[in-house]
Design a protein around this nucleic acid. Structure first.
Lengths: 121, 121
DNA sequence: CGTATTAACTTGTTAAATGCAAGTGACTGT
DNA sequence: ACAGTCACTTGCATTTAACAAGTTAATACG
């Protein structure tokens, strides 16, 4: 169904891509969602990704993800209360987007570790 | 094939998603690619999208897209030389990513124009 | 009891990216 | 000659992100 991406879709005055990117269009949000899809739940797990996100940015993105209904907090202990972060259905439903990105990334950066000097992983 | 997104993929020290987002992970790049996929070619066409991109940002993103091989410039006239921008195969191959985003956006923001006060389209 | 460690953040400051307005150069059309 | 178009560039203000350090509430160790 290749014409999900057609003119009429786009010309409605709010394009679903533009709307989606209001939530996802930055450097970190999709990487956090990737980690959550892979089963990470806790702050330290999310901090531990190969690409090091600054702690204030992670905290900020988690707040925004919660505010936009992609993620919920669940307490996993009391004293002190600590939360883990779990994707809602809305968040889970981004899996195909990430999968499409994986496919593209694999096709065009198969050995990127050695080719891309910008890569700090 | 839902386990394109599995641990082994991710744990190789450069995740294809992370690599892809080095190119695409900002506010404007994917919107420009959307427009190019929809057949826009010239600077003014790209400027004319509902979401208004600043002209310096558009010029900068087009340069970066060219540098990373997603787009090429083609002269459509001499005197003065003017170029249009066309996706390479590498750029075209992002279509499934954008289609997945459209699907998600349609599912979760069906009437977003009236619901989202942040929307300036 | 006191010090150390862990988890999950927050705060302050600096650096980088983005946004906005105006300007430039090479033309064309009147 | 002058106005207009196209595709940018430049300078500056504002916003966002990065880096480093500090905080709070607890448990674990000696």
């Amino acid at each position: 169904m290749t014409d999900d991406l057609d003119k009429s879709t786009f010309e409605r005055s709010c394009c679903p891509i533009a709307c989606a990117l209001d939530y996802l269009g930055d450097k970190w949000t999709l990487l956090i969602i990737r980690d959550l899809l892979l089963g990470k739940k806790r702050y330290q797990e999310l901090m531990a990704s190969p690409k090091r996100i600054a702690t204030n940015i992670l905290a900020d993105r988690l707040k925004k993800l919660e505010a936009s209904g992609l993620v919920i907090q669940q307490a996993y202990q009391q004293k002190p209360v600590r939360y883990e972060y779990v994707l809602t259905k809305k968040g889970e439903d981004l899996r195909p987007v990430l999968e499409a990105l994986v496919k593209w990334g694999k096709a065009y950066f198969p050995g990127v570790r050695f080719l891309n000097p910008m890569n700090k992983d």
